[in-house]
Amino acid sequence: MSEPIIRIRDLTRHYEMGTETVQALRGVSLDIGRNEYLAIMGPSGSGKSTMMNMIGCLDTPTGGEYWLNGQEVSQLSDDQLARVRNKEIGFVFQTFNLLPRATSLHNVELPLVYAGVSSRERRSRASAALGRVGLGNRMDHRPNELSGGQRQRVAIARALVNEPSILLADEPTGNLDSTTSEEIMQVFAELHRQGQTIIMVTHEADIAAHADRTVVLRDGKVETDRATHGVAA
């Protein structure tokens, strides 16, 4: 493994629920290298999404350390976290989370707006990103004029447009049928081949099989962590 892009040590995340404390993560340690393609699996409630929120800097840990690109994230302010999300992280959600009133192009431009990119450059970069996911001909469509698979591709283009260090996908195929899921996995495989680091949560073994490495969580701890040989064509 090359120098890790992500270095996690004894990471914990507790939720206070009245008098009770829910321990979503109970000491996770993990290194993830550049250009890795990692799948996170585990039963429902095992802490997968919590883990992804930590890695994506949407949430901060209760204890432990998280180093992203050599930077200790728990020390950062809200604004700095927003900057890190904008520059280093690309999110793909299970429910796509596109802005319903905006066109594909506009949706993909959004991270660039927050990055302060000029409108001319935004347009060209956003249309290039849509081209990469095979939607060059759907730029002026709104989400409700697209199929589920197409919506997820717009979301992937949006995640890629800022050239992030890591692509984070929490159950990206959870709302898609198996054929469309397979198409999305092809897109991921292609991105991975081009050097993109990808971390993906999934329930399905055949989806996880596309990754190089699979980490299984159980009760907020790493149960297994093993290399899988990517089956992506």
Partner: peptide, 13 residues
Amino acid sequence: REIGVRKALGATK
């Protein structure tokens, strides 16, 4: 939810 998405994409407060 849109606000959440915008924050995830890097919008500051």
